[in-house]
Simulated assay, not measured.
Amino acid sequence: MTAPASLPPEPLPRLREFGVYIGRFEPPHQAHLLVMQGALQSVQTLIVVIGSARAARNTKNPFTAQERQDVILAMLAEVGVEAGRLRFVQVRDFFYNESLWLSQVQGGVAAHTGGSRDVALVGHIKDESSYYLRSFPAWEFLPTHVVSPLSATDVRKAYFEDRLEDVRGMVPPAVHAFLDAFRQTPDYAELRAEYDYLREYRAAWQASPAPPVFVAADAVVTRSGHVLTVRRAARPGRGLLALPGDLLEFGETLLACAVRSVRQETGLPAEHDLTAALRAQTVFDYPDRSQRGRTVTQAFHFDLGLGALPGLHPAADAAEAFWLPFNEALGRPDLFFEDHHAIIEHFLMRG
């Protein structure tokens, strides 16, 4: 009697050379860990792209890119993943230039792949916030099977509201240890105070029949390779650098609002005619540009030409006002409030 022929073994799934996983990880949570573990079953090396790098700490982005990178390594080490299978790319936010963001991601990944085309993009298309997964057609799309309602927004909310047992159930042990240690720092104390301030600020508008849209004006004043900058004295963003600016008052134009803000916040001498120095203006309306609520600003660029830098006399709502050299203004996005660095960059990079 002839023995039955044995079935050939099923082929193992192909192991891609590189996988790319993009996120902000503010902070990493259990679903992030599951996605990375799943990806590492399909790729040899996982490149984790950490967004919102080089930004000032705030309640939406409370942790530095390096802190997030370190805690991702720690949480993966806990489940036996070797650090050698991971690579990292840290990418800035480019609110008003999607092409620059794409270029940063592509360049950062290329620095690790050495020209290999065997690259897969890991992700889950859940809503319009996942649009970026369609932005890299040269990479194979590798859908994750992890579907979870958990979000970093939920973690941050529980964290800043002292619901620590809820946090424990949302994040891996290494992340919980990091968050627990971070709670003892002055940075956490400032962020917690800002979280409470913003919650009260937004609550004041909850009775409005429709979500409010605030209109503001900001001023980019330049002279002799410097930009006029203030340091915020009040929340939100206390201690961060910002442009002179304010919410629009009834009865004034946006241009008048920008000029008023410069005079009030910096004490720029009146002999410098800002209206005559106007060179350009642009609307900045990224929907999430301000955590206070939907805020649209019209920014004006005033160029005072060459010459000595005028003396300044900041008002009470600015801790200080000073002339910041272009190289420092462009090179330190981590010092600036909200999207003010992007606004400065927009006008200065126009040439």
Rank of each mutant, 00 (worst) to 15 (best):
F95R: 12
A315Y: 00
V105Q: 09
E98H: 13
F322L: 10
E265H: 12
L247K: 14
Y188P: 04
E128Y: 11
S151C: 08
G225I: 11
W101E: 05
R238P: 01
L12Q: 14
T282C: 08
R117K: 15
F284C: 07
Q66F: 11
A299T: 13
F302R: 05
R54A: 15
F322W: 13
A258Q: 03
Y286T: 13
E200S: 14
R350C: 03
V91I: 12
F284S: 07
G237N: 07
V220A: 09
G307Q: 07
L179N: 11
A189E: 12
S99F: 06
A216P: 03
D154R: 13
Y21D: 02
H145W: 10
E165Y: 05
E10Y: 02
Q206C: 01
V262P: 03
G51P: 00
R332V: 01
T59M: 02
L304S: 11
L248C: 04
R202S: 06
L164K: 02
V296A: 10
A308D: 14
A110C: 06
G51D: 09
G38S: 12
H346A: 12
A77P: 01
G251I: 04
R117Y: 02
L198I: 11
L228P: 04
A31I: 03
Y21P: 01
A216Y: 06
G307I: 02
L324G: 06
S224R: 13
R168I: 03
L73E: 13
R263I: 01
A56L: 07
I344Y: 06
L179F: 09
L102A: 10
S148G: 08
A277N: 06
R183L: 02
A65H: 10
L133G: 05
E10A: 13
G245T: 06
A203V: 01
A277E: 09
E338P: 01
A174F: 09
P173V: 10
L46Q: 04
R16G: 01
L330M: 09
F337H: 14
L142F: 07
D154L: 15
L274W: 04
A138K: 12
L268Y: 03
A138S: 15
A217D: 07
G107A: 14
V147D: 14
